[in-house]
Nucleic acid binder design. Sequence first.
DNA 1: CGTAGTTTTGAACTACTTCAAGGCGCGTGG
DNA 2: CCACGCGCCTTGAAGTAGTTCAAAACTACG
Lengths: 249, 249
Amino acid sequence: MPDTPRLHVVGQQQRPCDDCRLRPNCFPDHLQGEFAHHAANVIRPRAPVPRGTYLFRQGSPVTSFFFLRSGSAKSVLTEGDGRESIMSFLFPTDLIGTASMDQTVYHDSVVTLERSSFCELRVNDLADLFRSDPPIQRAFLAKVTSRILNERHARVRLEHSSADERMADFLVELSDRLLELGRDPYELQLTMSRYDIANYIGLAPETVSRVLRRFSDKQLISVRHKQLTIHQPARLRKVATTSADASAD
Amino acid sequence: MPDTPRLHVVGQQQRPCDDCRLRPNCFPDHLQGEFAHHAANVIRPRAPVPRGTYLFRQGSPVTSFFFLRSGSAKSVLTEGDGRESIMSFLFPTDLIGTASMDQTVYHDSVVTLERSSFCELRVNDLADLFRSDPPIQRAFLAKVTSRILNERHARVRLEHSSADERMADFLVELSDRLLELGRDPYELQLTMSRYDIANYIGLAPETVSRVLRRFSDKQLISVRHKQLTIHQPARLRKVATTSADASAD
DNA sequence: CGTAGTTTTGAACTACTTCAAGGCGCGTGG
DNA sequence: CCACGCGCCTTGAAGTAGTTCAAAACTACG
């Protein structure tokens, strides 16, 4: 985990958001001015947790929402028959728990993919936050919308795309996230396993392996273990949208 | 359109929800008591519109959310490359516009599949409604959650299911909706085209046709035009979850 | 009653899966 | 610190479900 924002472990910090590096990305429109004041009362930084930690499990009562601050996680949906589907990968500034806004029971599980840290927002405090700062409510809904759109995109990708398109699109997605966070968008840390990726984009793990190989052969990328480098972002992007491959050189 | 609730065309009705047949389904927890009072001020019934009417188009500014009262509609997402994906089919009591909660611009288009009627909730009134009746806010979020879960289900179905499973699951989904609305759950009106169905469950239209034929041959269902009857709901449900087909009799 | 659009049916094709085995990396324990 | 073992990942070969292309049948609608 190379460039993750250094986390400041705090006991009873007064204004947790004030010195957060992710502040400009977290609630872009509302972290200025008043918000920080209100938010300080309810958004609580938590100590980092190791890889494989469950933030919550599907079926247990909703107690909190979270904002990921460093590291990464996956959201997993378990079906009645025991099959597991990965609904999304989560990165810093992501609001976690968007699928459980009804505030009854968590509808998926969230597990860290590496050592990660979070901010916690207890549901009991949510109503207060909304009341004390009405605009924040819209910002919150915007986060929810963003997740819906992301999941829709993932679904469209499943419906109408070839293996190459899906893989390319997935890589572009990760790259864009890195860019948003101000990191190098061409150096991807695949913190998730190949199985996770395969599950997420609806392919067999073997196919994931083969497609990566193919991209590698075409010089689009290079892969070593969990470190992936994008060499030709434009062509990769083209593969992601146009099923037409950028041929073999 | 057989059993759809009769719509009362109203000019300036005082309390639109009071005599709505769908009331028990619309906001189950909140249409009692006070809610109706607050809601009356902002939720406005609209005159019915013919088939093919756009409630809104992807990209245009968000002005209103809607509740479908009678008929049916589809939500369509247009990709950059012009491909269209059907994200959901909408039925009475559904909240329409859940993917545009950020209140910027509609992120999909919604078109009626038959003569349909709606209630309208203008975004400008939304904040007022939330303020005047805080619990309604949670009910609203619950509706949003419900849609997210529905779309997740649709996605999981795409990831891990055979054509038979997808089709069976789709039919079960429709059947369940009918049941919720108090109609005969075994008499389905396929108001959408085979192309729409194919798009929705991620298959070629030809495959949809073939699968329906197969189900028909197995006596699970019978199909005539757009009228579909479920004969063996239990077996159909089994096909939906267990890829294992209920064999050939 | 004819025409356009939708649905069904048929036959060939192909992209991905599945099954099987080998290699590699990483963590553990000696 | 090095060796071992387990799990993850890759590679290969065969099988198949669903797509694609093409055309006929049906429906709806003027």
